[in-house]
Design a protein around this nucleic acid. Structure first.
Length: 121
DNA sequence: CAGCTGACCATAC
DNA sequence: AGTATGGCCAGCT
């Protein structure tokens, strides 16, 4: 049984809880938000220790490409995909999330050329 | 203390 | 396209 007293786990889970429904977040981003910018792998490890009663939306955490967790995590990609689609997450592939639409937190970099070229009206 | 592992990430070929 | 490799770091043996 994993103790929630572990600082690393506690901080990681705290960030996972912040991910809103309908959005997803990557292991690397969770690691950054938790204060461990390079510990993305450990975030994945922390996810594997998550249990049902913890109320953690671990299905909203995916890798940088947007592909879903391995089969054993949720009993198959179908299950995780079902959970995400229920929340409004769209997919570009059977097991790949549309990261551009659903990545959280949103990237509002001013260097986005499309935002400067928005047609009026 | 030392070595291995992994729900990762980026790069190179 | 896919496959290999190096870096990363907390947890486990």
């Amino acid at each position: 049984m994993i103790e929630m007293d572990d600082v690393f786990f506690e901080r990681v889970y705290e960030q996972v809880r912040r991910v809103p429904a309908g959005s997803v977040c990557t292991y690397g981003t969770i690691a950054e938000l938790a204060g461990y910018p390079k510990a993305s792998r450990e975030v994945g490890f922390a996810m594997s220790r998550v249990q049902r009663g913890w109320n953690l939306p671990c299905h909203r955490i995916v890798n940088a490409k947007g592909t879903l967790a391995p089969t054993y995590a949720f009993g198959g990609h179908r299950v995780q995909r079902q959970l995400l689609e229920e929340e409004g997450v769209t997919f570009v592939d059977d097991e790949t999330i549309d990261m551009a639409r659903h990545r959280w937190p949103p990237l509002d970099e001013p260097s986005g050329p499309e935002q400067l070229a928005l047609p009026l009206g």
